[in-house]
Amino acid sequence: MSTKKTVAFRYIFYSLVTAALIFTGYCLEPQESRLFLESWGLWREPLIAGMICGLSSALLGVYIVLNRIVFISLAIAQGASFGIFLSFFIAGLFSVTLSDSPVSLATGLVVALLSALLFAWLRKGRRWPEESLIGLIYVISSGLTILIGDRIAEGHHNIDNLLFGNAVAVGPQELKILAGITLPLVLLHYLFRREFLYGSADPEFMGVKGMNQRAWSLLLYFTLALGITFNLRTLGSLPVFALMVLPPFIALKSARGIREAFWISLLLGVAVPPLGYFYSYLFSFPTGASLIFVAMIYLAASWLETLIFRRKKTPLDLSTIAGSKPST
């Protein structure tokens, strides 16, 4: 079967799964479903924001899965958390109230970027396993956050909103900011897709071809940190992690080409958040957990997809995704 046909079939399959999820929700709670649609005006911004976050998370997630650094999003999120806490702590020392000031977000972003760059720099030496480096960043950020957390005078509610977002409270202004960050990021990844892909797949060969491997690697991690920090504010830490892992995992599981893997991952990344909100509304689930539940349904469906299309088994060892060295 040609790649185009394969992608088409997989698109149709996951579209049917999406339709089935919507239909199931409607059958179980028809009245709530109608109310959800009627109150579309209330959900519009959060849904669109969720889809934008899902798009960028699924795109960036392909790289973190292929590079075997799936926990990097948690480590960078923790770095961002520390940055935000730090800004409130310093503000408190000077009796300044930050509230929703962009200063705290900017500080969080800077620390997230530094965490990503630190990881990229340490990883370059190839002396330490990636998961150890990720664990190092996570533990250090967490420890420092706890140390200064107690000493912050300003309400933790403000900090929680900055850190973990409030998925259903996204307004037009925040949506514009999110779109303003995400769309250039996606465009950057499209324009330089070969640099990022080939540099990840075989950095040594690309170095011989004259590619500045270190610079492109740093840029990739920069985009990871940027995407994670802004998505964190909208969806929260765990849903962002789920969107960076599950759609790429499903896409790569039986992909017969890299383009196919990206398209399927993006489709799932865009579909999961609105369905998550839908089920959250229907059954009063916490939004983040509902989003992860929907992602798990797609994961279960992916095994069904494998059976239906009887994909040829490859030596791909999915257990290596967690961070072990590949077998070649």
């Binding site: 071809k209 791909l316 995704i321 590949p326």
Partner: peptide
Amino acid sequence: NQVNMLFPIRVFDLLKMGLFP
């Protein structure tokens, strides 16, 4: 072979690496 085997790279895509940039 140092190509990361987790990447679903086809032989044709491998040759494209050779033609970069």
